Simulated assay, not measured.
Amino acid sequence: MVTQPYNITGQRGGSVILNCSYSGYKERDVLGANIYWRLGNITGPYVYHPYKEMVHPDYAGRTEVTGSADLHIRGLQMSDDSTYYCFVMLRLCRGSNKKEKQIQFGEGTQLIVTGCERAQSVQVLRLS
């Protein structure tokens, strides 16, 4: 079972960590785990993928996994304001010579980015 908090707030230009954890297995049974994060929905573009070329260009070089599955996003932009989905693909050993794959999906974390969206227009008056 993958769990994630529902809402997190970050400031434009700053960074955030979106939490994700997975459970429901015995650690000794895990042969490996791949962590993935997607944007918007569970089939949206990747914001984190083990293969860097799979990451959407807007997130290239700005994301990494920390801890076991948490997503660290640097240089927050107003366009990062969205829902993020974690999913984990586990490779498990179930008895002698029996391997199994298990995929666990998170429920989504809403990232709310705060900060000035755009500069206000300023009217300049010329005095004569």
Score class of each variant (00 low, 15 high):
Met54Cys: 10
Gly10Lys: 05
Tyr46Ile: 00
Lys26Thr: 13
Gly24Glu: 13
Val2Ala: 13
Gln77Thr: 12
Leu127Ile: 11
Gly115Cys: 04
Ile103Pro: 02
Glu100Gln: 15
Arg74Asn: 03
Gln4Tyr: 03
Asp29His: 06
Thr63Met: 01
Gly106Glu: 01
Val30Leu: 15
Glu53Phe: 00
Ser79Leu: 06
Lys52Tyr: 04
Arg126Thr: 08
Ile103Cys: 06
Cys86Tyr: 00
Ile73Asn: 11
Asn41Glu: 03
Ile42Trp: 02
Gly61Val: 08
Gly75Lys: 09
Ser68Cys: 01
Ser79Gln: 13
Tyr22Lys: 01
Gln77Arg: 15
Tyr51Glu: 13
Val88Leu: 04
Gly67Val: 04
Ser79Lys: 12
Cys86Arg: 00
Lys99Val: 08
Glu53Trp: 01
Tyr59Val: 03
Gly61Arg: 14
Thr66Phe: 04
Arg126Phe: 05
Lys26Leu: 13
Met54Thr: 04
Phe87Glu: 05
Leu18Glu: 08
Val30Thr: 04
Arg94Phe: 01
Leu92Arg: 04
Met1Ser: 11
Asn97Gly: 09
Arg118Asn: 07
Asn34Pro: 01
Gly10Asn: 07
Leu76Ile: 04
Gly40Glu: 03
Ile73Ser: 13
Ser79Ala: 14
Ser23Trp: 03
Gly44Phe: 08
Ser82Ala: 14
Cys93Gln: 14
Val88Glu: 06
Val30Ser: 06
Asn34Gln: 14
Leu111His: 09
Val47Asp: 03
Ser15Ile: 00
Pro5Asp: 06
Arg94Ile: 07
Gln102Phe: 00
Gly40Tyr: 04
Gly32His: 06
Thr109Gln: 08
Tyr85Asp: 00
Met54Ile: 02
Ala69Cys: 09
Thr66Lys: 13
Lys26Ala: 13
Asn41Lys: 01
Ser15Glu: 11
Leu127Met: 11
Leu90Met: 07
Asp29Ser: 13
Gly115Leu: 07
Tyr51Thr: 12
Cys93Tyr: 09
Ser82Asp: 09
Ala60His: 14
Gly13Leu: 14
Gly10Ser: 10
Val16His: 09
Val124Glu: 11
Val113Arg: 10
Gln104His: 08
Ser79Asp: 05
Tyr84Asp: 07
Lys101Gln: 14
Val65Leu: 02
Gly95His: 12
Cys20Gln: 03
Ile73Thr: 08
Gly95Tyr: 09
His72Lys: 15
Gly61Cys: 08
Ile35Lys: 10
Lys98Phe: 06
Tyr6Cys: 01
Leu111Ala: 04
Phe87Lys: 05
Met1His: 09
Gly67Thr: 03
Gly10Glu: 10
Pro57Ala: 13
Leu127Asp: 12
Gly67Arg: 10
Cys20Met: 01
His72Glu: 11
Thr66Gly: 09
Pro57Cys: 07
Ile112Gln: 15
Ser15Tyr: 07
Asp58Leu: 12
Ile8Phe: 09
Gly14Asp: 15
Leu111Trp: 07
Tyr84His: 08
Ala119Glu: 14
Leu39Tyr: 07
Arg91Gly: 05
Ala33Asp: 02
Val124Gly: 01
Met78Trp: 05
Gln110Arg: 15
Ala60Pro: 05
Thr63Pro: 02
Ser121His: 10
Tyr6Asp: 13
Glu117Asp: 12
His56Phe: 09
Ile17Gly: 00
Pro57His: 13
Gln4Met: 14
Ile112Ala: 14
Ile73Glu: 12
Ser23Val: 01
